[in-house]
Amino acid sequence: MPEEFKPGCARPTGGPVGEEPAKAGTEEPIIKKEEQKPMIQVGKKAPDFTAPAYFQGKFVNIKLSEYLGKWTLLCFYPGDFTFV
């Protein structure tokens, strides 16, 4: 079940699951790792993520992996109140 949240003034955001949180103020030299671009490929796992959502009158947090066991359509679009 998606978990409801109380929105504050900050815009709630989500992101990919499993990403390391950014460390603030680290003095260590940052060694740039070879950035491994996530490859989207049919037959491969869909990247898991959490994201805030509006759903039937409530603000909830959605995690893609909660939909395991179901066929899921994930649709992106350019923006609310655009025309298409």
Binding site: V42, G43, K45, A46, Y67, G69, W71, C75, Y77, P78
Partner: peptide, 21 residues
């Protein structure tokens, strides 16, 4: 560049595998 997401549509099966996009 545009700061928006393009019209992507992904079919994800019950095992979490992308079957089509």
């Amino acid at each position: 560049d545009a700061g928006v997401e393009t019209r992507g549509r992904f079919i994800i099966d019950p095992d979490g595998i992308i079957q089509g996009f």
